[in-house]
Amino acid sequence: MASLQTLFVFITFLCVIETFVSAQFTNFNKLVLPSGVIGPESAAFGGLLVNGPFTTVTDGRIMKWQGPTVGFVDFAYTSPRRTKQLCDGTTDPNMGPICGRPLALSFHPVTGLLYIADAFSGLMVVGPTGGLTTQLVGGLKFAAGLDIDLLTGNIYISDVSLTYDIRDTTKPGFIPDSTGRFLRYNPLTRQVSVLLSGLSGGGGPAVSSDGTFVLVPELTAKRISKYWLVGPKANTAEVLINFGGNPNKIKRAERFGEFWVAVSNGHIPPTPPIVPEGVRINSNGVVLQRVSFAREFVNVTISLVQEQNGKLYVGSRFTNFIGVYSN
């Protein structure tokens, strides 16, 4: 009898913990960009004191949140041709090659380096003081996502297409192709390896905390694949989960072995209204939680759901703010 009571208490404890973890993040706040600036597609936290978030914006800047009194300030930029007079506040996609178009960020917590995927310039890096970034990998048609293997230092990159760039996606009659690639950059050898090809659409990959696999999204194919890094399946991939909507960037959740996926239902093919949500999955592709963002992100796609200190930071190409959800 005592053992049954103990088991009951243990199960109740687990249920309470899961209920707390799975709360629906009903409190909402905005981190608003400077006037005239839009497109915070990515967010990253880093530095010795884990500050930020840092974010990418449409006019080519990487900005850093300095608290509610100061707001966002300039931190880095990816194009040496960029000038504030020409580029600040621009939403013209044709200015991307001049102003830069950073789409994804990932911090290395040990070195303090911030790695950037820029749609035109490829893989970039900048130090803790910011400024002009340094190009590590060029020649990519449409770099859209990245993540760092914290055990090896290798960097994994999503290159959306071999035939079109980000400007093409806004043209009338645009049709996505299946020429995307999943790449690995080794910072020691400075070599780039193509791990997967023929992918349908981009997004942002996520390396598992134990470094055994990478999750690779395909935006237009509506699925995520698991690419094994070690073990008997090393260097092979398998479909982990299919979605009804379009998965964009994937980020590690705060619970070990779990991930948050930014999903936009009704995006491609277009079936408005678009309904954005965060989907929490485990390493086996089991959906653990869905959080709708449709009330605050009305009929727009989202690109990122980043968990930090129990809050969800949500980014979109079409807003002038990062949404912050808490319990």
Rank of each mutant, 00 (worst) to 15 (best):
N282Y: 05
R295L: 10
P276T: 04
G278W: 07
E277W: 06
P269E: 02
F297H: 08
V275L: 11
S283D: 15
S303F: 10
V305L: 04
S292M: 08
G315H: 05
Q289G: 01
Q289R: 15
E296H: 11
T271Q: 12
E307H: 01
R290W: 00
S292L: 11
E307F: 02
V314E: 00
S292W: 10
V305A: 06
G310M: 00
F297L: 15
G285Y: 07
P273A: 06
R290E: 12
Q306N: 15
P270A: 13
F293C: 03
K311W: 00
Q308E: 12
R280A: 00
R317M: 12
Q306M: 11
R295C: 00
Q308A: 03
A294E: 12
V279C: 00
V298F: 13
V279R: 06
G315M: 02
P270C: 02
I274Q: 11
R290P: 03
G315S: 04
V287A: 09
V286Y: 06
P276D: 07
I281E: 04
K311L: 05
S283C: 02
A294I: 07
Q306V: 03
F293T: 06
R295F: 04
N282E: 04
F293W: 08
G310A: 03
P270W: 06
V291Y: 06
N282Q: 08
V305E: 09
I274K: 08
L288Y: 09
S316C: 07
S283N: 11
L288K: 14
E277Q: 14
L304C: 12
I302H: 01
F293S: 01
V286T: 15
P272Q: 09
R317C: 08
V287M: 10
R280I: 00
Y313D: 04
F293G: 03
L304T: 15
E307P: 07
S303T: 14
N284W: 08
V305P: 03
R280P: 04
I302W: 01
G278A: 11
S292Q: 07
K311T: 11
S292P: 05
Q289S: 10
P269H: 03
P272I: 07
P272N: 12
E307W: 01
L312M: 03
S292E: 08
V286L: 13
P272H: 10
